[in-house]
Simulated scan of single mutants.
Amino acid sequence: MSFLQGIAAALTPLGLIWTILIIGLATFLHELAHYALARWQGVAVKSFSIGMGPVLARRAWRGTEWRLSLLPIGGYVEIDGMAPTEDPDGTYRQPTRGFAGLPAWGKVAILLAGPLMNLLVAIVLMTITFTAQGVPAPDRARVEAVLPNSRALQLGLQAGDVITAINGRDIPDTQTVDGRLVAGWEGVRTALGQDGRKTLTVERAGAVREVAFDWTARVNGVVQRLGIQYGPDVQAATLPVAFATSIQTTIEAVPQILRAFGNLFARFVTLDLSRDENVSGPIGTAEIVSRAAALSPWALVQVAILLNLSLAFFNLIPIPGLDGGRILLVLIGAVRRRPLTLAQEQAINVAGFAFVMLLMVFVVVRDVSRFF
């Protein structure tokens, strides 16, 4: 299979459309938040672009040139006072008005608005999802599928069965597995890792029954599988409960997202092009969206949640060129009680921008290398 054939097999036209829509909306809301906080403080915004590269269409409205650009990746707002001021003789000097004239808290508010908007979008989408579909019940494991010719099939387990207890003991809300604190339902695998008599308490259509069997965890050194795919059960939730679960889920996702970014930076430094399921480039993202589009609208919502969370936390990384890096420079200036010089700030921003661009190139190269 050729490179182009491999990409064509992984992507679908509908998936590409949804990818552009999801990324475009996340980017638009991110930049709109920057725009709104700047205008709220009386700072002019020269231009607002959805997409990068050559401008396809433009229209002036309320003192801002609104643009639609060719490449559907990212976007930008040109806020007055963020870039150096060019004198008639072609020299550049430190800006003193607009963004540059704001106090530190005003600058941070503008820069923080974009990531916080993406975070808010993710929380709103999660709240809608949990309200419509229910919240995970950590102390109950729902059987999602029973594999053919498996022990579970012989025992009469079916998709939709809910495991509520193991060996007469209720599944706890949380437990420790391999040194990690996880939801209780994730410990079902651990319970089956030991030999002996097992009894699962199973609910089906309101009826409760016991499934008892003798279990050998390993046969000739090979780990035995019961033959079920399972996840947390869900229970109906009110709007406040759904919102609280969304906040909790976001907090729990932070370490996972940071580990994924840390792993990406480590692979970048070592030029490790092996595939990483936790971080995808544009083709990998479109592939994920294509699969989600074939499943259900809720699967697309899940992708949108993950993308907005990733965009929020990635932009908060204190690398010059990203919102987090700009916030760091503002805070350094506030501590020093004077801003960095134009030369210092330009050197830092150029280095940071170059790093981010190289990182993006690395992600794209790693993304497409699996098709060769």
Rank of each mutant, 00 (worst) to 15 (best):
L153Y: 06
A159I: 04
R267S: 08
I251P: 12
V241H: 03
Q158S: 12
W185A: 00
L200P: 06
L226W: 13
P240G: 00
V234I: 15
G221L: 09
V182T: 02
A183V: 12
Q229E: 14
V223T: 14
Q235T: 14
L264D: 01
D161T: 06
A242F: 09
A152C: 03
T250N: 03
R225N: 08
R218L: 10
L153T: 07
E203W: 13
A165K: 06
V177N: 00
L258P: 00
A237I: 09
Q248Y: 15
I166P: 00
A205E: 09
R180W: 06
A152P: 08
F265W: 05
L258Q: 04
G187S: 11
A165R: 09
V254P: 00
V182I: 10
E210H: 11
G196N: 08
G196K: 07
D195I: 05
A212R: 04
G221N: 12
D178G: 10
A205P: 09
R189C: 01
Q158Y: 14
L157P: 09
R267Y: 03
T164P: 05
Y230T: 02
R204K: 01
R259I: 14
A207K: 12
N263S: 10
Q194H: 15
W215M: 03
R197E: 02
I257N: 08
I171L: 15
P232H: 03
I166S: 00
F213K: 01
A244K: 11
V208W: 05
A205M: 02
P232G: 04
R259V: 14
D178V: 13
P172K: 08
D178W: 05
R267T: 04
R259M: 09
I166M: 04
A152Y: 12
F243Q: 03
L155S: 10
P148K: 05
I163K: 02
D161E: 09
P232Q: 03
G231N: 13
T250H: 04
T190D: 14
V254S: 00
V222A: 10
N149H: 13
D170I: 12
D178K: 15
N220I: 11
